[in-house]
Amino acid sequence: MTKFAGKTVIVTGGGGGIGSATSRRFAQAGGKVAVFDRDLPAARRVVDGIVAAGGQAAAFGCDITNRAEVNAAVAATEAQLGPIDVLVNNAGWDVFKPFTKTEPAQWDKLIAINLTGALHMHHAVLPGMAARKAGRIVNIASDAARVGSSGEAVYAACKGGLVAFSKTIAREHARHGITVNVVCPGPTDTALFAEYKEGAGNPEKLMEAFTRSIPLGRIGQPDDLPGAILFFASDDASFITGQVLSVSGGLTMNG
């Protein structure tokens, strides 16, 4: 499949579970993938795997909370791979505690990574997309944004903000041929979810409860997400913008 042949794709948090699965899928579909991650060795491991499989990718160390790093990484991507066609804002971080047990310093970090970082990426990439009258943006939020999630109050607030921001940017840039959509994972077997289970104090019991509550009967895997992400990024979704799709095995069903 070469649906993204010649397209330059940025995936933030590309060294992690969902990010790496998404980066590989874009590369398999012919995309030139810029793997952004603050953990540069992790990004390089993903790129090494893509290149070994015959794909095209490059790793960029980037802390999305730092605007200067974002600007530098975007400029380096365009110099090496070409103008940005697709942006996937996937990087995220969480603290798993009841809200009253958290501290303002944790709120600041949560907001910086989960909301402000995505704003930096949009602000850096949108002008070029608008000038070219084309672009696809897929923001990875969370079902916590849609229905709430105990122990993730500030994270849920950030992801809810990202949903509202995405809809607004979709309206502002529709005239430029840019679409902006949101994918909301449910519980997914990533390093972040492993931290969530440990924070609960009884990981096995929590895993059993989640599995029972998901109609399809299992926790999500990173490879469950790229299909929806690539759909929104493709020409097949050229008339879809400002939409939110849950990929959660039916845990949440929003009409």
Results as ranks from 00 to 15, higher is better:
Asn114Arg: 05
Thr77Leu: 00
His176Leu: 03
Lys159His: 09
Val125Pro: 03
Ile111His: 05
Phe165Ile: 04
Glu208Met: 08
His176Trp: 05
Ala124Met: 09
Gly14Asp: 13
Gly242Asn: 13
Gln106Val: 04
Ala68Trp: 10
Ala76Val: 03
Phe26Glu: 11
Ile111Tyr: 02
Ala58Tyr: 09
Gly17Glu: 12
Gly82Met: 00
Arg212Lys: 15
Glu198Trp: 05
Cys184Trp: 05
Val35Phe: 06
Gly227Glu: 03
Ala29Phe: 06
Leu110Tyr: 01
Arg175Ala: 07
Asn90Arg: 00
Ala237Thr: 10
Val138Met: 07
Lys101Gln: 13
Asp37Trp: 08
Ser246Glu: 07
Asn139Leu: 01
Asp48Thr: 15
Ser142Met: 10
Phe239Lys: 14
Ser149Asn: 15
Gly13Gln: 14
Val33Gly: 10
Tyr196Met: 13
Trp107Met: 04
Asn181Thr: 04
Gly61Pro: 14
Ser213Trp: 01
Arg146Trp: 02
Arg45Gln: 11
Asp143Trp: 05
Gln56Tyr: 04
Ala68Lys: 14
Arg44Gly: 07
Pro83Phe: 01
Val51His: 13
Ala53Leu: 09
Ile219Lys: 05
Thr12Asn: 09
Ala164Cys: 11
Gly54Phe: 06
Leu192Ile: 13
His123Cys: 08
Lys167Asp: 08
His122Arg: 01
Ala233Ile: 02
Ala200Asn: 11
Gly227Tyr: 03
Ala157Trp: 00
Arg67Gly: 10
Val88Phe: 02
Ser238Leu: 07
Val88Glu: 04
Ser150Thr: 00
Phe193Thr: 06
Ile84Ala: 08
Thr241Ile: 09
Ala29Glu: 15
Lys101Asn: 06
Gln56Asn: 06
Gly250Ile: 07
Asn254Thr: 14
Ala34His: 00
Trp93Tyr: 15
Ala75Gln: 10
Phe96Val: 07
Gly61Tyr: 15
Gly151Tyr: 13
Ala79Trp: 03
Pro203Gly: 07
Lys167Glu: 09
Ala68Pro: 12
Ala105Thr: 10
Thr168Asp: 10
Ile169Lys: 10
Ala134Met: 08
Thr102Lys: 05
Leu162Gly: 02
Ala57Leu: 08
Thr241Phe: 00
Met129Thr: 04
Asn181Lys: 01
Ser149Asp: 13
Arg171Tyr: 00
Arg67Asp: 10
Pro98Thr: 04
Gly55Gln: 13
Ala144Arg: 08
Asn66Ala: 11
Gly14Trp: 02
Leu110Thr: 11
Ile50Ser: 04
Met253His: 14
Phe210Glu: 15
Ile50His: 01
Pro98Met: 00
Thr168Val: 07
Ser150Phe: 03
Asn114Trp: 02
Val9Trp: 04
Gly148Tyr: 05
Gln243Leu: 02
Leu81Gly: 12
His122Gly: 06
Gly249Asn: 12
Gly160Trp: 03
Phe239Gly: 12
Phe99Arg: 01
Phe60Gly: 13
Ala42Gly: 13
Thr65Arg: 10
Asn71Ile: 02
Pro98Ser: 00
Gly227Cys: 04
Ile113Ala: 02
Phe26His: 03
Gly135Asp: 10
Gly227Ile: 05
Arg24Asp: 04
Pro127Ala: 07
Tyr155Pro: 15
Gly148His: 06
Thr8Leu: 06
Lys32Gly: 01
Gly14Asn: 10
Ile169Glu: 11
Ile140Tyr: 00
Ala34Asp: 11
Asn181Tyr: 02
Gln80His: 13
Pro127Glu: 09
Leu81Cys: 03
Lys205Tyr: 09
Glu103Tyr: 01
Gly16Ser: 15
Thr12Arg: 13
Gly160Cys: 07
